[in-house]
Design a protein around this nucleic acid. Sequence first.
DNA 1: GCCGATCCGATAGACGACTATCAGTTTGGT
DNA 2: ACCAAACTGATAGTCGTCTATCGGATCGGC
Lengths: 205, 205
Amino acid sequence: MPSEPSRPLRADAARNSEKILRAARELYAERGSDVPLEEIARRAGVGIATLYRRFPDKAILVRTALEQTFTEEVLPVLERALEDEDPRRGLAAVLESTMRLNARDYNMMAAARDFGSLTAEAGTRFFEALAPLIERGQRTGVIRDDIVLDDLRRIMAMLLSVLWTMDPREDGWQRYVVLVLDALSPEGASPLPPAVPLYKRRPGG
Amino acid sequence: MPSEPSRPLRADAARNSEKILRAARELYAERGSDVPLEEIARRAGVGIATLYRRFPDKAILVRTALEQTFTEEVLPVLERALEDEDPRRGLAAVLESTMRLNARDYNMMAAARDFGSLTAEAGTRFFEALAPLIERGQRTGVIRDDIVLDDLRRIMAMLLSVLWTMDPREDGWQRYVVLVLDALSPEGASPLPPAVPLYKRRPGG
DNA sequence: GCCGATCCGATAGACGACTATCAGTTTGGT
DNA sequence: ACCAAACTGATAGTCGTCTATCGGATCGGC
């Protein structure tokens, strides 16, 4: 996912980019996050310099690979859930299927975690697409109305973090999806302290 | 925090261990997580080999430093909160003050995150100490009774993860403490899917 | 099909994490 | 005070990340 158009890549460069991303996704999925970049370059059939030319560091490489997966798999699922007439059930479906997909790509996600690829603005399109569903839920009174979109981003990140505490092949994360949904319910909702803005970049490094 | 007694360290070795931990805590607090180990050794006034001898890798060094902070600061706070007559208020106080302390040690926590120092068994004593409070809350009906102690561990980890999405000097995390407390309330609680055991070690590497 | 712009692989080097070795110092039990 | 065991700093080497450079290959607008 090259960001804005500086200038479109030349055909061969784009081809190489694609090969590198595919190799990275394969290798991380197969072997977890400790794959040397040289090996990714080798599997992609390009020189190491080319890899670094396209992806200045590991975090960016993994982030880009993740965005690819995201566009191909998560976004379509999301769009289906958005059309659920019951917004609460729709939200549940979104959380469930996102978690399920991320549990499946466990190694890739672990790599993203290890290299700091998951910044606050990750999945912006995802949450933008989610906004109407939340609003509808709030209007119809099935989602507490003191929740803002940034809360959902953080809650999604919190849910993902629970994956690292369990075997991803079991579905233990479902328990926490339910807890989150309970927290988002208007029933018994306590007044919330104010929301603060998201950090742009990954802090603490 | 050397684990069980293989054999107690010799006096000079223990002294060096202590100096290294203090240097690490200082440097990480000052400069974030990208401090070379050589520099920590230098500030501690020991050779780099000594550092590696006591702390086989970065994750262990940071984990040990964290446990030190934990024992010195978190545990005392916890003990006070445990005596609150209202277990729900006690739990709220525990979550609040733990988050506040961790927000204060933001850089140290970021280092722990970056080096994989936060494993599933982190803070075992903390949660063991917390157990009676939870039980009391469940008996008196102010905490939902389908919650187990591992849930609390995961929820604490989830709460901590929210720190990376905000400026730690603001208190934005309070919002999520309240949401968590709402989720833990018996009011409007949905039935939960089964709990699965914690992973022992950090997976995905 | 020409030719400049773009992209390529190979290579060299800096730096930090980590391992291994070893001669010299410190400790602590007697 | 002695001495073996424990501990030490220095040093040398491996590996992976990442930067920089450069002659040669490829692309694409004409």
